[in-house]
Design a protein around this nucleic acid. Structure first.
Lengths: 177, 177
DNA sequence: CCTCCTTGTGCAACTAGTTGCATAAAGCCG
DNA sequence: CGGCTTTATGCAACTAGTTGCACAAGGAGG
């Protein structure tokens, strides 16, 4: 699966401890590959056992003691291999669309309020992305690294924009019934 | 989770056997809630045990013997309850965006071909949706049922359109490096 | 200095989803 | 009528992801 590769990418961007990774997942990589701290700790253990990462020296492993990891050459190679390997898109699951379809059969009772709530959530997310856009990608920056990362952010922005439009349209539909 | 509700919706639209449901999932509900035949058979068993569905009469249960199900009033009520219940959007995972982010760190070797392949897949999917659009939603049809189902289809069409645009843009980016 | 809160790591048990395979009936075809 | 394919149902074992909780260290404050 993809989680180990998400972690390798995050660690290459910056060596971190489990908790730091968890926090960074919550506001960056996690936008398109979320993970709980549990998954992350477990995966860090596996990656270390496989020789893809190691704990930074000068740190004895103990509970409640911060333990930072960095990527080893074998880990970078494995990530590069995976990145270049063709993969099918994973099946796509969306509860809200499913509920709309159900609502067509059993009635729309109660769903409108939740559409509004989702609209609000997407608007917040969009605002967050635009914040990042302004902060991390000012006009001058366009190394090829930056351009790729910016492309990913654009996908996020455009997806949120799509949802906002769709939800707005759906809510209009409800008003005219 | 949502699978049982996807199945209830499909069965309300039309009573079916396990295999028929599997096929219908592959070309309708499955566009936003996919499931394997395995999941479906297991879930049908559970739904029957809970008294939400039953096998159509005049059918003895035997291997290799078709067994059709229909939704009972309790099942419809449960689906209506679920549909009207507020739910958080589930975390969103996308391998391709993750790979782009990884590519920013370890290089883009090999990813371009796969972007083209994905572009092709999305174009086919869009064509399929537009086919359904033409076939199932001619201008006259707009009962409130139809309008909701059409709204869901529009989401599919617009999402595919988004991906096609994004991938096209990404590939242009690659050419100018 | 002892309790409480925060930071950090981790185990165990669960739910959801996937993959591989078995089995049975029924139709097709020489 | 005997093997071959298709239709149909299902078990078992696996991988991925979630939830609930435990526990240790260190700092803050009465």
């Amino acid at each position: 699966m993809s989680l180990p590769y998400a972690i390798l990418t995050a660690l290459l961007e910056k060596p971190s401890s489990g908790l730091e990774l968890t926090r960074r997942f919550d506001k960056s990589i996690g936008y398109f590959w979320s993970a709980t701290h549990q998954q992350i700790y477990r995966e860090l253990g596996k990656l270390e056992a496989e020789g893809f990462i190691r704990t930074l020296p000068s740190q004895q492993p103990a509970r409640g003691q911060k333990k930072s990891y960095e990527v080893l050459p074998a880990g970078r190679a494995e990530l590069a291999r995976w990145t270049g390997t063709s993969q099918d898109p994973r099946p796509h699951r969306d509860t809200l669309l499913l509920r709309m379809r159900a609502a067509a059969v059993v009635g729309t009772e109660g769903i409108e309020a939740d559409l509004r709530r989702h609209l609000d959530l997407h608007q917040r997310q969009l605002a967050e992305y635009e914040e990042i856009d302004k902060r991390d990608f000012p006009p001058g920056k366009d190394s090829s690294q930056d351009r790729l990362r910016h492309l990913v952010l654009r996908a996020g922005i455009d997806l949120e924009t799509f949802w906002i439009q769709w939800l707005t349209h759906a809510l209009e539909e409800f008003e005219t019934v």
